[in-house]
């Protein structure tokens, strides 16, 4: 089992519909997670650096990052996280609608921990979120 009882997940997603699906999937999960939802890259960096009203923000155990975001896109956020030595060790899972080869290659090149295409139907979506949780909070060892 994992070393922590409650896992903090930062979801960077501008679409409330998708964010809701993630929330529903986590609610049905066997892991205990706290979901923190931010809507764009700027807010994500404020959360991670605990600035601008995010002073009490926990350090997330996992970041779920959408690519298609308003303003700076997911690739740019990923690059910024990996460039920041205090944040670089947090696993970042890209969660995107895009299955384009160039998006996938670029994400891995920038240091994404994994890349998951959002499945079309809700069962598959829930299953994908559960498998992400199972891997990162069950199988994998995370930095404490």
């Amino acid at each position: 089992m994992a070393s922590k009882d409650i896992h903090d997940i930062l979801l960077v997603e501008d679409d409330p519909g998708d964010a809701g699906l993630v929330r529903i999937a986590l609610r049905r999960s066997r892991h205990v997670c706290r979901l923190h939802h931010v809507k764009d890259g700027g807010e994500a960096m404020e959360f991670l650096r605990r600035t601008d009203g995010h002073g009490q923000a926990p350090r997330p155990d996992l970041i779920l990052l959408d690519l298609n975001l308003p303003g700076r896109n997911g690739h740019e956020i990923l690059e910024e996280i990996r460039a920041d030595t205090t944040l670089a060790s947090i696993p970042v899972v890209i969660l995107s609608t895009s299955g384009a080869e160039r998006d996938i290659k670029k994400a891995y090149a920038l240091g994404a921990s994994s890349y998951v295409s959002k499945p079309m139907d809700v069962e598959a979506f829930t299953a994908a979120i559960h498998s992400i949780e199972d891997f990162w909070f069950g199988t994998a060892q995370l930095p404490s």
Binding site: G17, D18, M120
Partner: peptide, 12 residues
């Protein structure tokens, strides 16, 4: 990307 995104939300 953009066209399938809302479609997925509707379907889900």
């Amino acid at each position: 990307h953009d066209l399938r995104q809302p479609l997925r939300v509707v379907g889900s």
